[in-house]
């Protein structure tokens, strides 16, 4: 069934991140935290314990000073489009994560998750985070939680959703204004936040869309393409040393 629908749907939301335009300010990652009510810890320096949907990596060319160069690579969930299943949805024993075949968005339902963390082991991008503790906020900061996204609880996995709640809202707005909600354009928080417009989001199956065009750019590459996970997040870089690292494990 999924295969059939997969081919049928004319909508595949995807993202292109232009590393040549990225200035490494990480406004995207802050916007993501704010939008998605991502909790923080008193000590967030242990990166395997710290929750971050938009993780920031540093790629280096491996040369010595002053030939050394680096770029910053923001990494959301890749929303893998491999046939039938994404790596994570394939292993989930309780259907808590699943790919919406109408849009290609890989979602995560927190109340359903049993915290077995199979999906985390299956994800080759470390895009998934586990709530080791109950998320807590200082008393006053509860005020600034976004009502569009539910807070999680201890013992469940969470990850980037391409801000699918924004899609829901965009669809509703379209309906109320008498427009067709299918394949509607919407903007995830990180895309909206990027001051230099380095992140572009849209329907990869629409040949006229900017994402579709950019994804075929000669600077385009994806992370770990060799695994055939078919990520829907593309990167652009004019540096060969950057593109080459796309197929290696990120450190």
């Amino acid at each position: 069934m999924s295969k059939k629908e997969h081919e049928k749907s004319s909508v595949r939301y995807g993202m292109v991140i232009d590393l040549d335009k990225c200035t490494g300010c990480m406004a995207c990652a802050v916007a993501c935290q704010e939008e998605n009510n991502i909790s923080f810890l008193k000590d967030d320096s242990i990166k395997t314990r710290s929750i971050n949907w938009m993780r920031i990596y540093k790629l280096e060319n491996g040369k010595k000073y002053p030939e050394h160069r680096h770029v910053i690579l923001p990494r959301p969930c890749m929303h893998c489009d491999s046939p039938h299943h994404s790596p994570c949805t394939f292993v989930c024993p309780v259907n808590a994560t699943q790919r919406d075949e109408e849009t290609g968005i890989v979602n995560q339902v927190y109340p359903r998750c049993i915290g077995c963390r199979y999906c985390m082991a299956a994800c080759p991008y470390y895009a998934r985070n586990f709530n080791w503790w109950d998320p807590t906020w200082p008393k006053d900061m509860v005020e600034m939680l976004n009502p569009d996204v539910s807070t999680r609880m201890r013992g469940v996995v969470e990850k980037c959703t391409f801000c699918s709640h924004r899609l829901l809202k965009a669809k509703d707005k379209a309906r109320v204004n008498g427009e067709n909600p299918k394949g509607i354009e919407y903007t995830p928080a990180c895309v909206e936040a990027c001051p230099t417009g380095a992140i572009v989001f849209g329907n990869l199956h629409d040949p006229e869309s900017e994402v579709a065009k950019l994804s075929k750019d000669k600077r385009a590459f994806r992370l770990l393409e060799k695994l055939k996970t078919e990520p829907k997040v593309y990167y652009l870089s004019s540096h060969e040393w950057v593109r080459k690292q796309g197929d290696n494990d990120l450190k």
Partner: peptide, 10 residues
């Protein structure tokens, strides 16, 4: 209608 989780869950 679509029955994917993210149609109703946020």
């Amino acid at each position: 209608a679509n029955n994917a989780c993210n149609v109703c869950h946020k």
